[in-house]
Design a protein around this nucleic acid. Structure first.
Lengths: 129, 129
DNA sequence: TTTATAATTCGTCATATAACGAAATATAGC
DNA sequence: GCTATATTTCGTTATATGACGAATTATAAA
C-alpha cells in the first residue's frame, strides 16, 4: 500500500503538447548532434527569435531540453541525463521516428551551412532589421 | 542510394497532436484492457457523445486506435498489429508512462462500474435528455 | 418499409496557441 | 559606470482547437 501520488498524467500531457508542433519538433531534432544557441536555430528555421525563444521555453518546461547561459549565448541541448524518465522515453521515440526523415534531413543540411558562419556575425545580422 | 520519400515527420506531428489532449489520453488508456463502444467511453468521461466521437476520430487518424462497426455499436480498440511502427512506439510510451497514474486509475475504476451496466441501457440514458 | 437508436457530422462559441515586432532584461567588453 | 548585443517578455492578431446541442446517417428490430 502506498500514498505515493502518481502524477505522470500532467507530465505526459505537457510532453505531448510540447511535441505537438512542427517547429518544436524541428528545433528539437536540430539538437541531435550537440548544443546550439538560439540564433543558430533561428537561422535554420527562419522564424523570429522571439518565436523560437518561446518554443525553446516550452521544450524546456516539458523537460525535453536544457538551456544554459554561456556568456551572452544560451546553449540549448537535449536533456539526456537529468530529465524525467518520461521525457527521456519521449526523446527516444521522437529521435527514432524522425532520425531519417526528409524534412529533418534538409534542416540538418542547412544547419551545416549555418555552423560555418561565426555566431557573432549571425546574431548581428538578425538584429539589424 | 534511395528515392524513398521518408515522411515520418507528418506522421509524428499527427501522433503527437493526437496525444496532446487530456481527454484523448484518458480515452486511449480506457482501452488498455480491451475494446469499448462509444457510449461506454462517454459514460466514464462524462462528455457529450459528439465530443468523444470527434476525439476517437482523431485517435484513429493518428493510427493509435481502430474503430470497427459491430451492429449499431462502434468498437474502439488499440491498433496493435496493423498500425505504423511510429504509432506502436507512441502507444508503448503512453502506456508505460500512464499505466500507474492516479487519474487513469480513477477512470479505470469508473469503467468497472460502467461495464456492469448493459450497453443498451447506457445509450438510452444518454440519448433521452 | 417503418421506427428506434448508436454514432457521426455540422454550426457555433469560447479558449488556446503560434506568429510577429517592440520593449525589456542580462551579460561582455570598453 | 556605459555601450553593444543575445535573449526574453509583452502586447497584439490570426488561426486552431475543444466543447456543446441539433441535425444527419446508418444499422437493427418491428
Amino acid at each position: 500500500m502506498t500514498n505515493y501520488k502518481n502524477n505522470n498524467f500532467k507530465t505526459a500531457v505537457t510532453i505531448a503538447k510540447a511535441l505537438a508542433d512542427e517547429t518544436r519538433l524541428r528545433a528539437l531534432m536540430l539538437l541531435a548532434d550537440g548544443p546550439l544557441c538560439l540564433c543558430q536555430i533561428v537561422e535554420v528555421l527562419r522564424l523570429a527569435s522571439s518565436t523560437i525563444s518561446k518554443h525553446m521555453s516550452i521544450l524546456q518546461q516539458a523537460g525535453l531540453v536544457t538551456g544554459r547561459k554561456k556568456g551572452r549565448w544560451m546553449h540549448f541541448a537535449w536533456s539526456d541525463g537529468d530529465s524525467s524518465p518520461e521525457a527521456r522515453q519521449a526523446l527516444d521515440w521522437i529521435n527514432g521516428t524522425l532520425r531519417n526523415d526528409d524534412q529533418i534531413g534538409r534542416d540538418r543540411q542547412r544547419l551545416q551551412e549555418v555552423l560555418a558562419i561565426e555566431p557573432e556575425q549571425l546574431c548581428r545580422k538578425q538584429n539589424q532589421n
